[in-house]
């Protein structure tokens, strides 16, 4: 992914910025400009909304067959996390023994390196999920 393409998403990738529809209060991630529920009446009423970062594992998989740029990590765990705000997000699970992961497990977002760009080694950061202590 090019630097510019990555850079445009930084607010969402670093700080989990999504949007909240002022019309129906539903939260979306990543940013949407139109609420799929309210459509026309949501235009101009979509507010920037930062997710709390806390949620629960809705489902997960341990990836053994990964594309070349991910292969140094395998096996690694990826999950769909249901955030406390109700919206779901996909991300890797880290700082956890793979055998300990379960559906319903409490997790929170942590900022980590999520990729590297070619020979120049430009590092991309973004959120992953780690077990929640509380």
């Amino acid at each position: 992914m090019t630097v510019a393409r990555f850079w445009r998403d930084i607010p969402s990738r670093y700080n989990l910025y999504g949007t909240r529809c002022d019309s129906c209060d539903k939260v979306y991630f990543p940013v949407r400009h139109i609420c799929p529920g309210c459509r026309r009446s949501s235009i101009g009423r979509m507010q920037r909304h930062r997710l709390s970062g806390k949620g629960r594992v809705h489902s997960f998989s341990v990836v053994h067959d990964a594309p070349p740029h991910m292969s140094s990590l395998k096996p690694y765990a990826v999950a769909i996390v249901e955030m406390d705000e109700g919206v779901k997000v996909t991300g890797q699970l880290v700082d956890v023994d793979i055998g300990e992961i379960d559906i319903g497990m409490g997790v929170e977002a942590v900022l980590r390196k999520i990729g590297e760009e070619g020979q120049d080694g430009i590092i991309h950061y973004g959120f992953k999920f780690a077990p929640r202590l509380d």
Partner: peptide, 16 residues
């Protein structure tokens, strides 16, 4: 980009 392969998305469906 978040690490999900096409197979792992189906694996998450299967697990749920």
């Amino acid at each position: 980009m978040m690490g999900a392969t096409f197979a792992s998305l189906h694996a998450m469906i299967a697990r749920r």
